[in-house]
Structures are given as structure tokens and as C-alpha cells.
């Protein structure tokens, strides 16, 4: 069984922010929210690196564990999805998320934060796959169409890889062997192998 993952090759990412832009466009993500971001570390120094980050769809996902109203759930592909009809905007998933993925409308601060929104691995939500209701709440369901997330498929340098973890891991390893260096899979230990210490 495939287990989907995201992998960002930091030696290739050029911080063009195309992934963030195309995601907002594909899913018509509302104002003030962003499902995918690009973070630059050591900005302006020789070892500067850019990494595209969104929800990593963790193994033993902490957001699902802390959600008080069972809004968040995981599928057998490893994709973590959310149900906007039950979300109460408590913010627990944001505190439990190692990657700052859950987003809230900036507008409603008082009493509630409004309903949470996050990366769906382009797999929609609990509504019928491909339906208009699903699109309005969660954006397009590309997985049900047999496609991969738009952010990875649009990446011009193929820095951002998405899909079956073994397959993209193999692509990345071959690439590292071929060019002779590689910074490794950022965030994978926290996201996918929580029980492996150090």
C-alpha cells in the first residue's frame, strides 16, 4: 500500500513561491490563509536553503490526536484531512502541529478563530469526491482524479516531490548519488518517524 509523503529537495528549491501561488489558485484558498509556504533558512549566508512546507501528513499525526471534536482524520494513504462542518476553531491542532500547517481566517479573533483550513494533499474532504460542495470547502480533489498535489506537479525545478514515499525517496536518493551531495529529507524524522529517537 502506498503511503504518500512530501519531500523538498533543498538543493533545488529556488524560492519561486510557485507552489504557494498555484495552491491558492487551484483551491481558491480564502484571504489570509496559505496552505503551502516557502521558508528560507540562513538567509543571505553561504549555506542558505529554501524549503517549501505545508502539512506533512504525519505518521501518528499529533493534530488528529488533540482535536477535541474529531474534525481531523487520516486516510489509508496517510493523508490527513479535515471536516469543516465540525471544526470549532479551538486552535489545538496548531499548537500540536510540528510544521505550523493549520490556518485560521485572520478575521475572527474574538471567541473563536473561525474554521480551520489546511493542506489536503489535494484530496478534498468528507464530501462526495469531486462534488461542488467539496470544492467550495476544501478545494479540488486531485487524488480522486488519480493526480498528485498541484504544488509538486507544478514545481519547475522538481525540488518539491509528492506521492508514494518509497517512490519519491528512490528518486531523491538516485539524484543525490548522481550529483554527489544532498542535504537530506527535511522534517521527515519529525513527520514520519516519530518513534525514532535522535
Amino acid at each position: 500500500m502506498a503511503r504518500v509523503k512530501f519531500l523538498c529537495d533543498t538543493d533545488r528549491c529556488i524560492e519561486c513561491n510557485a507552489c504557494a501561488t498555484v495552491c491558492k489558485n487551484e483551491h481558491e484558498v480564502p484571504w489570509g490563509m496559505v496552505r503551502r509556504r516557502v521558508v528560507t533558512i540562513n538567509d543571505g549566508e553561504p549555506d542558505e536553503k529554501s524549503i517549501a512546507i505545508s502539512c506533512m501528513h504525519c505518521t501518528d499525526a499529533p493534530c488528529v490526536a488533540v482535536c477535541p471534536v474529531s474534525t481531523l482524520y487520516q486516510t489509508d494513504l496517510g493523508i490527513v484531512l479535515h471536516d469543516k462542518d465540525t471544526c470549532i476553531g479551538c486552535g489545538y491542532c496548531f499548537y500540536a502541529c510540528p510544521f505550523g500547517a493549520p490556518q485560521y481566517p485572520r478575521a475572527s479573533l474574538f471567541g473563536s478563530r473561525g474554521v480551520m483550513d489546511k493542506c489536503t494533499f489535494c484530496a478534498g474532504g468528507p464530501e462526495e469526491n469531486g462534488s461542488e460542495a467539496e470544492f467550495r470547502k476544501y478545494g479540488r480533489n486531485r487524488i480522486a482524479e488519480g493526480k498528485l498535489p498541484i504544488c509538486a506537479e507544478v514545481c519547475s525545478t522538481r525540488a518539491l516531490l509528492a506521492g508514494d514515499g518509497d517512490t519519491i525517496g528512490e528518486i531523491y536518493r538516485e539524484r543525490v548519488i548522481h550529483r554527489g551531495y544532498g542535504a537530506g529529507a527535511w522534517g521527515w524524522k519529525t513527520a514520519y518517524y516519530p518513534e525514532n529517537e535522535t
Binding site: 509556504r37 516557502v38 521558508v39 528560507t40 533558512i41 540562513n42 538567509d43 524549503i51 525517496g169 531523491y172 536518493r173 543525490v176 544532498g182 542535504a183 537530506g184 529529507a185 527535511w186 522534517g187 521527515w188 524524522k189 519529525t190 518517524y193 535522535t198
Partner: peptide, 12 residues
């Protein structure tokens, strides 16, 4: 191919 687990904050 795993990176060390660490707190990483950059710029965006």
C-alpha cells in the same frame, strides 16, 4: 537520508 530533528525557523 533523514535530517536531524531540530527547531528550524527561517524567513519567508
Amino acid at each position: 537520508m533523514l535530517q536531524e530533528r531540530q527547531r528550524v525557523v527561517g524567513r519567508s
